[in-house]
């Protein structure tokens, strides 16, 4: 999101904003206590913990939305908490679900000498390559990480070129080069078949026109310019569809947070 322009403000306005802030904070605390009182002051410890979690989540949500009014210190704190919590959580998960079962347990807690030997044989090279990546942190020994990177790049390119060519080029070309009447079936109605043919024709015209728009090797004459303009129209329609879906996605996310605030924090009956 684009940061909002900072404007010079009068001390009066700052005082009013501070007063509104205190009032909103007080309202938040009162609303939280009133709405979560059954869980907060109940006998079940799990309910109490969950209520505290909901209140913290509600506070962070509202602080995040405060950015829409203006950038502020609370937003900055919440932003940093979010990033820190995500990284911390990720680090713990990586240890618990990857490093511990894949490296620590097989090597440090091997049940037998044979198991330890197997672990050393099969895991020492990958572990070494992983450790070499960390040498990037040192200026002197950073070059060692190139061995790991070269493996990664070489392997990645080798695997990806073949797979990408098939998935994203050959299969797409095959689908685009289908005969126009390929969608027509005997049991479908006239309208359905007409729709299939129209769709195939639209894809054909769209593909040719858009490709032509990006063909800069020859000057576009009067006919070429029309084809090129048609290509622009198809591109615009595509961008419009993407924008529409993006707007839908963003609204869905706001709906998710609002559902949380209304039904979990404020406990409005559904």
């Amino acid at each position: 999101m684009e940061p909002q322009a900072q404007t010079t403000e009068s001390p009066m306005r700052r005082t009013v904003e501070a007063a509104v802030m205190i009032a909103l904070g007080t309202a938040f605390v009162v609303a939280s206590i009133l709405c979560q009182k059954d869980s907060l002051f109940g006998k079940n410890a799990n309910d109490r913990i969950e209520a505290v979690g909901i209140i913290i989540a509600a506070a962070l949500t509202l602080i995040m939305y405060s950015f829409l009014y203006r950038d502020n210190p609370l937003f900055k704190i919440a932003e940093n908490v979010y990033i820190g919590a995500q990284l911390g959580y990720g680090a713990i998960n990586t240890w618990r679900l990857a490093l511990r079962p894949q490296i620590y347990n097989p090597l440090a807690l091997a049940p037998s000498n044979q198991a330890l030997w197997d672990a050393l044989v099969f895991r020492s090279v990958p572990i070494l390559l992983g450790v070499l990546l960390l040498t990037r942190l040192s200026r002197k020994h950073g070059w060692l990480s190139r061995y790991s990177y070269s493996m990664m790049v070489g392997w990645g390119a080798g695997m990806t070129i073949l797979v990408m060519t098939d998935t994203n080029i050959l299969q797409q070309l095959q689908a685009a080069a289908k005969p126009i009447q390929a969608g027509v079936t005997a049991d479908a109605g006239w309208w359905a078949n007409a729709g299939a043919v129209t769709g195939a024709l639209t894809v054909l015209v769209g593909t040719v026109c858009v490709l032509f728009y990006f063909f800069f090797s020859i000057p576009h004459g009067p006919v070429g310019q029309r084809v090129s303009k048609t290509g622009i129209w198809f591109l615009m329609l595509s961008f419009g569809a993407s924008f529409g879906y993006t707007a839908m996605a963003r609204i869905s996310l706001v709906i998710g947070r609002m559902r949380f605030l209304l039904f979990e924090w404020l406990k409005i009956p559904q």
Partner: peptide
């Protein structure tokens, strides 16, 4: 929903059999 438009070409080719978008 943001990702859905990128996936429709795969639906046309049959590489993806169905999509739930957003």
């Amino acid at each position: 929903a943001v990702m859905a438009p990128d996936l429709y070409p795969y639906l046309n080719t049959g590489q993806v059999k169905g999509i739930l978008a957003g």
